[in-house]
Amino acid sequence: MELDLPDLHARMLERVVDAVRADARFEALLGTGSLAYGGFDEHSDLDFVIVVRADDHAAAMAGRQAFAAGLGSLLAAFSGEHVGEPRLLICLFGPPLLHVDLKFIAPGDLSALSEHPVVLWARNPGDLERRLAGLTVSGQGRDAQWYEDRAWVWLHYVATKLLRGEHFEAIGGLDFFRDQVLGAMLQRNAGRHPRGVRRVEDVEGAKALLAPTLPSTGHRSIAEALKRSAALYVELRTAEPPSSPVKGMPGLLLDFIDGKQSRA
């Protein structure tokens, strides 16, 4: 498949395709992220999924650092346990600096992909296309109730840190909520793939809606950003209401923030 990529990215793609094609253990190379969804530019990462024969998957995982090192000047690499994806190897090449993700999966894992990939190379294109034809992606399994079940728990957690005086922990919690809930719902409501705050600036009105959820380091500013985050969530959920809203919210949360909650 022909892709219009910056020269640096195009050269890396060519090296990865050549390396995958030359290794009989590998069945296909897929592209995800901006490679699949568009909007690729000079600042983009390269996100690759390498499909490995099932019998060779363990060996490929054990040798993935060596595989990455063979692609060019590898500066650093580590696995993705911190994002719940141990099959992922996150790499930095350079100079010039380039971020490349290499995810090694078995053919049976194709049905569990969280986004529709673009096929960059396949040993058996017809078989791969048939496998991918049955792939169904729906918001990473996050329906309206998924957000509702988590939103108030996460916001209450932020409030407890604020009231304890852990301002930076509270700010971090608001950042997490903005990415996992508010940004994703803004994207969903705009008919886009809900990828947190990635390129959320492209959603009409998103910047103005999210700006009040960004606090400074003072107690009052964090409390106001927390309340605005709760209000924006309530506003965004009207587009797709949850089947079982959490009782008493947002009133219970607002009372908690303002110290009005009964201790009885």
Rank of each mutant, 00 (worst) to 15 (best):
G173F: 02
I50H: 05
S73M: 10
H219L: 15
A159S: 14
Q187E: 06
D101Q: 11
G31D: 09
L30E: 05
P117C: 05
L214A: 05
G165M: 02
P95M: 02
G84Y: 08
L155N: 03
W121N: 06
H167G: 12
F104R: 04
V52E: 09
E27C: 15
D101H: 13
L110P: 10
M1D: 04
G70T: 13
R11F: 03
P242R: 03
P117A: 04
L89A: 08
A206D: 08
S44V: 00
S111C: 11
V51R: 11
A208W: 09
G72V: 10
D255R: 15
L132I: 10
G134E: 11
V52L: 12
Q261P: 01
E27P: 07
L174F: 07
R130P: 08
D255P: 14
H167P: 06
L71E: 08
M185E: 05
P245I: 04
P194S: 03
F40D: 06
R142V: 11
R164D: 11
R87V: 04
A208R: 07
R142S: 08
F67V: 11
Q140K: 08
L252D: 14
D175H: 03
L163R: 13
E224D: 15
D101T: 15
G139W: 00
A151K: 00
R64A: 05
I171C: 06
W154Y: 11
R87T: 07
A239I: 01
E204F: 05
D4I: 13
P96I: 00
H167Q: 12
A144T: 07
A133C: 09
R11E: 13
L236T: 05
V17S: 12
W154G: 00
G134A: 08
E169R: 07
R263L: 14
P250W: 14
M185H: 03
G33S: 06
R131G: 12
R178M: 11
K103S: 11
D179S: 13
F177I: 03
I105R: 06
A211H: 03
G173C: 05
A170C: 11
A10Y: 09
L3R: 14
M12H: 09
D55C: 13
V16K: 06
M249C: 09
Q145R: 05
E240A: 12
P125T: 11
L182H: 00
R198P: 00
L236A: 02
A122Y: 03
H116L: 00
S244R: 13
P250C: 12
A24L: 13
L46V: 00
I90G: 00
E27A: 14
F176V: 13
F78K: 10
D202C: 01
E240H: 08
E27G: 12
G70L: 14
V203H: 07
D7W: 07
R21C: 09
P212C: 12
S111K: 13
H193G: 00
L74H: 08
G183I: 02
P107N: 09
E166F: 04
A184I: 02
